[in-house]
Structures are given as C-alpha cells and as structure tokens.
Design a protein around this nucleic acid. Sequence first.
DNA 1: CCTTCGCGTCGAAGCGCTTCGATGACCTGC
DNA 2: GCAGGTCATCGAAGCGCTTCGACGCGAAGG
Lengths: 333, 333
Amino acid sequence: MRTVTIADVAKHAGVAVSTVSYVLSGKRAISATTRQRVLDSVRVLGYHPNAGARALASKRAKVIALVLPLRAGMNLPVLMQFATSVVTTARQYDHDVLLMTADEGTEGLHRVAASALVDGLLLMDVEIHDPRVPLLRKLAEPAVLIGFPADPEGLTCVDLDFARAGALCADHLADLGHREIALLGAPRVVYERGTGFAERTMAGFVEAARRHGIEADARPCEESFDEVQAAVKLLLDERPGLSGLVVHNEAAAGHVLGALRILGRRVPEDVSVVAICPDDIAERASPALTSVLIPAEDVGRQAVRLLMAKLDGQAVPESTLLEPRLTIRESSR
Amino acid sequence: MRTVTIADVAKHAGVAVSTVSYVLSGKRAISATTRQRVLDSVRVLGYHPNAGARALASKRAKVIALVLPLRAGMNLPVLMQFATSVVTTARQYDHDVLLMTADEGTEGLHRVAASALVDGLLLMDVEIHDPRVPLLRKLAEPAVLIGFPADPEGLTCVDLDFARAGALCADHLADLGHREIALLGAPRVVYERGTGFAERTMAGFVEAARRHGIEADARPCEESFDEVQAAVKLLLDERPGLSGLVVHNEAAAGHVLGALRILGRRVPEDVSVVAICPDDIAERASPALTSVLIPAEDVGRQAVRLLMAKLDGQAVPESTLLEPRLTIRESSR
DNA sequence: CCTTCGCGTCGAAGCGCTTCGATGACCTGC
DNA sequence: GCAGGTCATCGAAGCGCTTCGACGCGAAGG
C-alpha cells in the first residue's frame, strides 16, 4: 500500500491541499464543517505527514538533539531518568528526540545543526571549560545546557542547585546536633575533569558547616567496596569524634553502609548518614537513607521547556537552579 | 549567514547540482578531477546536506528509532551501555538514532514509521506476548528486536543466550564441586510480565543442574537490602547444605554479599557467589564477583548491523543468540 | 571513415509539504 | 446600492535534494 499523502487527504475531503495543511496546523481560520470533513478523511485514510517534507517546507524538524555523556564516574540511573523525562516532555510539545553521545563532540553538534536534522540542542554534563560552548554561542540553533560552564553569559543553563544540596545536608546534620561531619564525594577523576557540580556540592557543604560553626571535611571517594571501606576507616581514624557523614556518590552509598557495619559503627546510633542520590537507591538501602534527591525528572522537564520557549523565540533566563529536597529516613538522627 | 545548499556548492565548483549529488553519493562515476573540485568546494563552504530534503527526495531518512523501556525492574546501566553502543554503531553506518520510550506504544511506532521519520526500528525488552509484534509484522520498515517474543517467525531477534548464561553458572558451581545451589532472580514483577530473559535464565540454570545431578532451586528476588537479606536467610534456613548462589539481579548483587556477611557466611569459603551482571558492578563488589557478563555492547552492535543489513535488502537470520562469557573472580571456589 | 559504445556531465522532474497572495462570497454601514 | 472589510478557500511557488533520461565526446571496432 502506497503511503498516504496530503494530496490524498485533500482529494478525499474534496478540498485543496493547502486547506488540509491549514486544518492541521491551525495557522488560518477554517470553517468548522470543512475542518471536520478534513479531520475525518485524515482518520479514515490514516494520514501521517511526511516528516522530511514538513521539515523541508517549514524549516522546522520538530526534533531536538539530546547529547548524553558516557564516561567514567557518570551516574547511569540518573542519566536514564533524565533521558526519559526529556523524551516524555518533548513529546508533549510534539517533538522527537535524537540521541547523541558526547564523543561525537563539537563536530557532531555542528553536523546535526547544519543539516537541519534538529531544531535545538540539549547538552548534559557540561564541564567548566567545555569545548562545545564556543560553538553553541555561534550556532543559529538554540541550546540548553545541563550544568554550568565557567561563563554562562549568553547561554541557557539548568541544574540542580548542588551548593544548596550540600548545604542542606550540613544543615540537617547540624540541626541534629552533630559537631563533626564529613562529605564523601565523587571519584577523584570527576573533580579533575572540572565537572562543576561535584565541586559546588562540596563548597556548599563546607560553607554551611562553617556557618554553623562545626567541623567539616570533604574529600573524593572511589566506587569499589574496598576503597570505600578504606576511605571510611581512614576518616573515622582521623576524626574519632565524627558522627555525621554525607555521601555524594551513588555507587558508593550502599558500600558506605556496609563498611560502617563492618567497622562496628551503628547507623544512625553512632553515625548519621545522609546521601545525595535518587530515592530508589536510598529506599533500597538498610537502614533506608536520609537523602537529598537529585530531581532528574524536573531537570529534564525544565530543560525541554526552556528549549521550546527558545524555539518559540521567547526570552528565557540564563540560569535556572532547581531546589533540592531532603527526605528524612532512618539513617540520620 | 544563509545556510549553504547544494546549489552553492555546484556554482562554486562550476558544475551541475546533480554532479555534486553524484560525487557525494558515489552513485555514478565522476572523474577524479571533478570529484576533487567538488569536494574542495564542499569543504571550503562548509556544506552539510539538508536532512529533510535528502529524506524527501531519497526516501531514506538515515535515522533509526531506538525504543527503550523505562519500567520497574529494568536494569539501567545495561540499558545505557546498550544505547551507547547502538548510537555509536549507527553512526558508523552514517545513521542517527531517534530515542523513544516504550510507553509511546504501538501508536508511537506507527507514527514514526508512517511519517518516514525513521527507516527502521530497534526495540528493546521485548516481551513474550508483546502487543507491538503484530504491528511490526505489518510495517514496511524493517525492525530488529532485542529479546524474543513467543513466536519469532518472520521477525529478527537478537539477545544474549540467557539459558546458556544460567547453565554456565550452574556448570561453574558444579565443576567446583558444589552439590546444592540456588538462583536468586529478578523481582517477581519481571516474571509476571513475561519478559522471557529472566525465565530463560532460570530454566537454563535448573536444567544444567539437573544434568549434573545436583540440587537446584530458583526464585525471584526483590531489590531492597532488607528483602534480599530475608530471602538469603530463608534460603539458607531451608537448605542448610547450600553452598553455591547465583544472583541474576544487578541491584541485589551487592546486597547479597552484605547479607551473607551479616549472616556470618564467608564468601567464598562458606558460599560461592556468581552474578549475572556488568563487569563494573562485579569488580566493585567485595570480594570481587565471579560473573557472567551481559554483553550489552555486542548486542547493540549486532542489532544495528542486522538492521542495516535489512535496510540494504539483505536477508538476515531470524534469531541471533550471543554467547555469554564467565569471568572467574574471588567470590567462587 | 563511419558506427557504436561507454563515460562523464547536465537539466529537469519530482518528493510532500508550507505559505503567500489572490479570489470569491458574504456582510457591514453609510 | 455600493465601497470596504472579513472570512474561508484555493492555486502555485518554492524548500533542497535525488534520480532519470539525454547528450556530447573520445575510443574502439568493423
């Protein structure tokens, strides 16, 4: 069966091709009766506009690019959640999502933009000195970044407010009366890459602790059980009075609990633990972890909304920070 | 700056538009000198063919759809690996990847196919009685499935040979001399959905154990630490002689080790543990887990290759099973 | 020497859609 | 009763590319 074109619909409905187009796009007034007739024909014939033709004629592909990183130290579940939310939200705006990996690099972005394959770009995991940023500034296509480069001037960036997240953890522990706390962060490589969010969390944490006038310590943390255990042991040896621990490392969160158990520290009686991680991981742990949620879904949704606004030619804020939320569970007291 | 079209290239190179097209597609012989002149112009002008126009004229979008599930019990890291490998491989064939979620359902597949947005489909996590299969049989666009529906007749399916994976674990434990073994599988909901791979693993495991004449037990397993611990305890109580444990549940693998530790069983001295999971998880555990790798990358690559072959009109096998590979680490002896 | 052939190139016809300007038909108000 | 305006619809001109048939030219064949 030959594929149905707009001409078939027009003939079936007894109207001009352009009329069908206007019914479908709503860009000109069409009488109710005609509209209905056209819509019926569309349904009867099972018409779907040809995407290529539409893109060619309208200069809008109705597709956005989602550029995902795939490197060490990335936090896969959060990435997936994020991707899911982007796709779902984009569909609500009648757009599709083209998936790209970050290692296509600047050239890849240029390719999809120049070929008009996509109307806009969504980049995840932007680094402080991201080589793609200069290109984005030049590109005609609008872009939204997840994460913040050193200079967000002229860009549109969204992210969880990681400084607030770090601070929230410190606040929580301070409020509970802890006087010596520490943060176990992402693997060292993440900091070396200058990914920003990890540093901002640490900074927020340390600053909040200072404000409360309590002792705080923050260091990177690798992800294998043995390394986590070693790190926890070292920390506890160095700081015997330590009673509050923040873990900003999804893969390590479970291991930290295991390590404390082995080291004979009870949670939360001896040590309170707060994690920065998705809820499902926190809930699956034992004891269930008090945690600050990384709202991947919100970030994805916001990012798409901003991009759609830019596609509509609306002005949008350069920077959007999402408020973190602390959920108290069993691991802190 | 106006975007560069093929006409600009043609003028710059002093040839006809069609000549430029033939140089770029290689579908007709072009003299070396002309070819070079055109190629130079392309480079100088920074020409990128317009995707929509190309798709319209050639009836090939050079885009494939990747349909990912996003439901409970899915194993995110493996999914990401898979997606990455699909994108990378597709790019090698000069194709892009449109990301869709499974909950767009049959209708979504129909939409992208009918609108010629994509040339082919890649579906992950196909269920035994998948409602999308009938549509795929009708569709003009070729499709490749990851996983097997009840009747793969007329389809193209790829997957890890999970029965072999289960058997491999049983073989390994039997070879080590264990006489009573058990498998902890995916959460119950996964079996209820009829996802196939979970059942096939169990079946392969049980069958291999039977062949070795040893006792085997297989049951679902939830993913929270407490439930894992309860399940392990129950198993150990019921089967005091149990000395070999297979875990086919990525989220639970770490928890199983923690539970055994708490229950006072040493790994591997008292109980040998084998996991079916990605290598990074196995390596990060303590002790490092002997594991059967889920070769997400291979599956993705194979799937794209098969799809590309179908797009070229080549015949491909209905079913492709990938051989699992066992890596011996510290958790079994 | 003329025909035949193949090679390299060109021009033009679409592909299916959007959008602009034009055209009637019909109303409004003076 | 007619100028002016509105509303609904139409026709046609592209959008940028691929592809088909045609054509000119030099080499090969008789």
